[in-house]
Amino acid sequence: MLRRLLILAVPWASGAATAASMWPEQLWDQRRAAASPIELQDNSVWEEYGLEAAEQAQYPSFRVRGYRLKDPTSALAVFQWLKPAGAPPARIETYSAQSASRTFLLRGNYVLDFDGRHPTDKELEVLYLQLPRFDNSALPTLPKYLPAANRIPGSERYILGPESLAKFFPGVPPSVASFSMSAEAQAGQFQTPAGPVRLAIFSYPTPQIARERLAHFQKLEGAVAKRSGALVAVTLGSPSADESEKLLAKVNQIVTLTWNERTGGSGDNAGVFLLNVFIFIGILIGLGIVSGVAFGLIRVGWRRMTGRSHREEQEAMLTLHLGDK
């Protein structure tokens, strides 16, 4: 038990050590007054999400909080988890929300929370250049499959492992979700005429794995599940099976197949070009040999037809005698 506690303590100690360098001394037109680590709860979920640092800073006219995660997928999970209730979406980032005095946004592997200031696009671009270990790689596409109609605002939760599954979508055992097969899930709640319905969409690397997992989801008590491509959608505890079926019918993954054909154009490599050159040279040499043999055979045939010897042909050779002049 002591060994487990020591292992769990290492990431948080590391995060606290690196947090002091998250916020710059000078941010835009203001100088930092204070900075301190953010006190966190649900440490097991944070560990699963790959939290690297969490720090808040106070500037003269506003306060800001920042969370740096291991990658943008984990940052998306944190954004959905911590997004202020009732804050409408903003246009400043793809994932962002604003209230009267607060701006909450996701960019790369960072989740930022500004209180007392709405930063502009240009100000944020300056800040992104100052953030340490900034990762702006692609975000996951799974959230787009969560139906938008009748979704309860703020109910979205991104699941990356057993801890977040137990917290945000209880009722599905980790052995059924099978995170060892690189599963991820997007969960949400929906309002239906029969009452609220919980829906989670699990994503797997291949349709074959999703097909195998579907049978396990269908065995869960109170679950209604379907597969679409590499996705498995499941509702739990729905007050109406019909409403579950209507909701699941909106989850569809369109699989796009790409067929590549070799055109043989200018993109051929140098090795193929050199091979073609040597083949052409071989053809020329072959033609030379064939024409030489043919010429020799013609001469032999001509001598036999005329009855002249090789010596007579040499004596009959035309001579100019230029040396006599």
Rank of each mutant, 00 (worst) to 15 (best):
G171H: 06
G171I: 07
G171M: 09
G171F: 08
V172E: 05
V172P: 01
V172G: 02
V172M: 05
V172Y: 04
V172S: 05
P173L: 09
P173S: 14
P173C: 09
P173G: 13
P174I: 05
P174K: 08
S175W: 05
S175C: 02
S175R: 14
V176W: 01
A177V: 00
A177M: 04
A177P: 06
A177T: 05
A177S: 11
A177F: 00
A177H: 02
S178L: 11
S178T: 08
F179Y: 13
F179G: 00
F179L: 10
F179V: 06
F179C: 03
F179T: 07
S180G: 15
M181R: 14
M181P: 00
M181S: 12
M181K: 13
S182T: 00
S182Y: 11
S182I: 04
S182C: 00
A183G: 06
A183K: 08
A183W: 03
E184S: 14
E184V: 12
E184P: 02
E184A: 14
E184F: 05
A185R: 00
A185T: 02
A185D: 03
A185F: 01
A185Q: 03
Q186L: 08
Q186E: 15
Q186S: 10
Q186I: 13
Q186V: 12
Q186P: 03
A187R: 03
A187P: 09
A187Y: 04
A187V: 08
A187L: 09
A187T: 08
A187M: 11
G188R: 02
G188Y: 09
G188C: 11
G188I: 05
G188P: 01
Q189L: 11
Q189M: 14
Q189Y: 10
Q189F: 09
F190T: 07
F190L: 12
F190I: 09
F190Y: 15
Q191F: 08
Q191V: 10
Q191G: 07
Q191T: 14
Q191R: 15
Q191I: 05
T192P: 08
T192V: 01
T192Y: 07
T192E: 12
P193H: 09
P193W: 10
P193I: 13
A194K: 12
A194M: 10
A194R: 12
A194T: 12
A194Q: 14
A194I: 11
G195L: 12
G195C: 13
G195E: 12
G195Y: 13
G195D: 13
G195I: 14
G195Q: 14
G195W: 15
P196E: 06
P196H: 07
P196T: 08
V197H: 04
V197L: 10
V197Y: 07
R198P: 01
R198A: 11
R198F: 03
R198Y: 00
R198L: 04
R198W: 02
R198N: 13
L199F: 08
L199N: 02
L199V: 03
L199P: 01
A200T: 03
A200F: 01
A200K: 06
A200E: 02
A200W: 03
I201T: 02
I201A: 05
I201S: 02
I201F: 04
I201M: 04
